[in-house]
Design a protein around this nucleic acid. Structure first.
Length: 494
RNA sequence: GGGCCGUUAGCUCAGCGGUAGAGCAGUUGGCUUUUAACCAAUUGGUCGAUGGUUCGAAUCCAUCACGGCCCA
């Protein structure tokens, strides 16, 4: 909210740098953009690291490099570009007095350029023997401690740009995130899926049970909602005849923050006509196994205190089976009877709401006693219809749907199902959701008449799934908090 | 929402009732094959905010703000 222009945190260090910048302005262009590099630090290291000192001096091959000055080692300066680091040597013979004086004014954090032959020092490190040196951008703020770096979590999240400058592991983490998304796009494209974009601003927020963010369209004088899911729009596309569509984009949910929740988060969601939830599980398994082996070069993931095994087929249990497996004191009879199930739930400290049916009670018991214990990759299937308003009923047991969720490290990572394509059943489910909303559940769904109309034209039998990209990246980068995998996690304003 | 912990120099931290400290960064000088470069000198603080207790508060108490971890 602050429109302040004058920084409140000026100090002597910044003042000294501002003075140097003022001098630069007097001498000419203080922010030149006419220097062109012809080499990256990391490439030079990779290509010439093993060359001998004499060989390099004989070759005397010139390179032009740029980067941020991050260490001052007396006669040597260390710069860093996106690819890596390389030293610059301040050669008093090769550089004229004016340039030497200029270099003396450089500060850690400045962005500089240098040109000269690539040599190797007595200690075996490559350096550019500078014959030309220029300051490209003056840094006005001092960098964090060169050894300890930036460790204050709040500063690292609020000033991610500084975190990225000084912490290579953070840069590596976000490079991996980018690779995850690229892998998924490639995986989906190879299977014939088409990437689409559907509205982020919706008049009726649908596709999930969650509180939306509200915004306002002035010209239409209309309240709109940031989407909580793209589901209903993507399924309209399958009605339209696009048989394999996917979208990777942000969802917004107006809920609390935690190490696993950010108000905006990224989901892959896809819809696959003429397929069912079993096909979706198989696709999930193939995608995750491919991701792990391709990006980590292994079939196992080390995540916090866990060793997660992604080789072989993932375990599959129904909701009820998993509750029974993890709760030897609970019987199938108890779970099948509403009153008995309520007693079990109450015994677990669950606060039963009057509108809940048996399915909801079962899910509460599942979430309380099973979910966090599903460490190895596991599919849970047969979710109650009551808590699955968009999923197709099971042919043999209409109490449950052909739905699954995927868990690993005690967390839900994906949710998919055979889609409900019976327009009349869907209309009925929406009405049940509206009743829940009227009973006070502000996360219940709205009745989406246009979506029903679309279904009435006929949606082919379809499978669909959403996979949480942030949580997936957490897993692949061994990150304990979702904030570690978001470049700019949500924070209260300073 | 609840519990625990944190907030001191630009950064990383110590100090926990008696004159506000260190390392790094900065400044000045030296040093030209260094690797957290080194050597010498030196600058830098409303101790998160507001109240209170006390002769005296960074330190004890209360409230608030922001953050971290755990729980719901």
């Amino acid at each position: 909210m602050s429109d302040q222009v004058t920084p409140q945190d000026e100090n002597k260090l910044i003042a000294e740098r501002r003075l140097k910048l003022a001098n630069l302005r007097e001498q000419g262009n203080a922010f030149p953009n006419d220097f062109r590099r012809d080499a990256h630090a990391g490439d030079l290291q990779a290509q010439y690291r093993d060359h001998g000192k004499e060989t390099l001096e004989e070759a005397n091959k010139e390179f032009a490099v740029v980067g941020r000055l991050i260490r001052n080692r007396g006669a040597f300066l260390l710069i860093q570009d996106e690819s890596g680091q390389i030293q610059l040597y301040i050669n008093r013979q090769a550089l004229d007095a004016a340039t030497l004086a200029q270099i003396k004014t450089w500060d850690l954090g400045d962005i500089v350029a240098a040109k000269g032959p690539l040599h190797k020092s007595g200690k075996g490190d490559l350096y550019i023997n500078m014959e030309e040196a220029r300051l490209l951008t003056k840094s006005l703020r001092p960098l964090p401690d060169k050894y300890h770096g930036l460790s204050d979590q709040e500063l690292r999240y609020r000033q991610r740009y500084v975190d990225l400058i000084v912490n290579e592991d953070v840069r590596a983490r976000f490079r991996l995130r980018s690779k995850v998304v690229a892998y998924i796009r490639n995986f989906m494209e190879q299977r014939g899926f088409m990437e689409v974009e559907t509205p982020m601003m919706q008049v009726i927020p649908g596709g999930a049970t969650a509180k939306p963010f509200v915004t306002h369209h002035n010209a239409l004088d209309l309240d709109m909602y940031l989407r909580i899911a793209p589901e209903l729009y993507l399924k309209r596309l399958t009605v339209g005849g696009f048989e394999k569509v996917y979208e990777i984009n942000r969802n917004f949910r107006n809920e609390g923050l935690s190490t696993r929740h950010n108000p905006e988060f990224t989901m892959l969601e896809y819809y696959w006509a003429y397929a069912d939830y079993r096909d979706a599980m198989a696709l999930t398994e193939a995608m995750l196994q491919g991701l792990v082996s391709d990006l980590l070069g292994s079939t196992t993931i080390e995540y916090q205190e866990h060793q997660l095994d992604f080789s072989g087929s993932f375990d599959r249990y129904t909701v009820v089976e998993s509750i029974l497996a993890y709760n030897p004191n609970i019987t199938a009879e108890q779970l099948a009877d509403f009153d008995q199930a309520c007693d079990v739930a109450k015994g677990l400290g669950i606060d039963i709401k009057p509108i809940w049916g048996l399915g909801k009670v079962q899910i509460e018991i599942f979430e309380k006693t099973v979910e966090h214990r599903l460490i190895q990759p596991t599919f849970i299937t047969a979710y109650p219809t009551e808590v699955s308003p968009l999923a197709r009923r099971n042919d043999d047991d209409p109490f449950v749907t052909d739905r699954f969720e995927f868990f690993v490290a005690g967390r839900e990572l994906a949710n998919g199902f055979s889609e409900l394509n019976d327009a009349e059943d869907q209309a009925e489910r929406f009405r049940a959701q509206v009743a829940e909303k009227e009973a006070g559940d502000d996360e219940a769904m709205h009745y989406d008449a246009d979506y029903i109309r679309a279904l009435e034209y006929g949606m082919p039998p379809t499978a669909g799934e959403g996979i949480g990209i942030d949580r997936l990246v957490m897993l692949l980068t061994n990150s304990p908090s979702i904030r570690d995998v978001l470049l700019f996690p949500h924070m209260r304003p300073e």
